[in-house]
């Protein structure tokens, strides 16, 4: 946690940890992002909502350095940054859990946790320090209350919820992590598995002070763990409220109203 007392409240505690200023991105003739402005407070959990194709995933990939924006500016901790790679964004404390799960099915739980940051014996050969990685992984998973019976198990042996928990744990594990991006962390998950992830997200933000952006379609879930919700439509932010000052009904009403407006202006085809 930072030096401020109590849980941080959106936009009220000093500078935002992350600020996006007029981000644009085109893929060929398609303008996916048309000037996105977004800010994320310290320790804040921001829910990002939008229809398929609205630009959510593109936005997430720009923040994490996986793809580059055509225009606009990104400020992390008050300093302007241009990330040219995932490694570079990560070195500044931006971690991601992608929708398609970055776990490797054939690797053990602890190798997945340490992927691309393996502990080695050092020196010329750089052999893996499996024992050290195994015990550190065990300790960390215990710390964050993620129960994985067999840390040597290959990731494909785990349930969807367990794998998602490992993916979140991996992203949050790095010292210096400032912003965590979660792309549909609860997709295709049962209620019990979802609550495991929801608890994990709450724990990450409240006791570890990690700021998060969560992309999800399920408003009920989002209202359970988000401090604020932003709606992205047609490549721009169109709605932004603190969850304490709004409701699921209000968000639903806005989304439906927007949808109707687009149907009437002929921008989307009506879905029956």
């Amino acid at each position: 946690m930072t030096d401020t007392a109590g849980p941080p409240v959106a936009g009220e505690v000093g500078l935002p940890i992350l600020r996006l200023d007029n981000i644009t991105k085109r893929f060929g003739a398609v303008s996916v992002l048309r000037g996105v402005n977004l800010s994320l407070g310290r320790g804040e959990v921001l829910g990002l909502v939008g229809d398929n194709g609205a630009g959510k995933t593109t936005l997430v990939k720009i923040i994490t350095g996986f793809i580059r924006a055509d225009g606009g500016r990104i400020f992390l901790d008050g300093k302007e940054r241009r990330f040219t790679s995932v490694d570079e964004a990560r070195s500044h404390g931006i971690e991601t859990v992608y929708q398609d799960l970055a776990l490797i099915p054939q690797l053990s739980v602890y190798h997945n946790l340490f992927l691309n940051r393996e502990l080695t014996t050092g020196g010329f050969l750089g052999l893996l320090s499996n024992r050290r990685m195994r015990s550190l992984a065990r300790q960390y998973l215990d710390d964050i209350n993620v129960n994985i019976p067999d840390i040597d198990a290959e990731a494909e042996m785990l349930s969807g919820g367990q794998r998602q928990a490992i993916a979140v744990a991996r992203a949050s594990r790095m010292p210096g992590v400032k912003v965590l991006l979660l792309d549909e962390p609860l997709a295709a998950m049962g209620a019990r598995e979802a609550s495991l992830i929801i608890d994990l997200i709450r724990d990450m933000s409240k006791s570890r002070g990690i700021s998060m952006i969560v992309v999800d379609h399920n408003y009920t879930h989002l209202f359970e763990f988000c401090d604020r919700i932003s709606v992205i439509q047609q490549g721009a932010i169109t709605w932004d409220r603190k969850t304490a000052e709004t409701s699921i009904d209000e968000l639903t009403e806005f989304m439906v109203w927007e949808y109707r407006r687009q149907v009437m202006s002929g921008r989307v085809e009506k879905v029956e």
Partner: peptide, 9 residues
């Protein structure tokens, strides 16, 4: 998992 590996850097 080539995409997953790439995303992990």
């Amino acid at each position: 998992n080539r995409n997953g590996a790439a995303e992990a850097g």
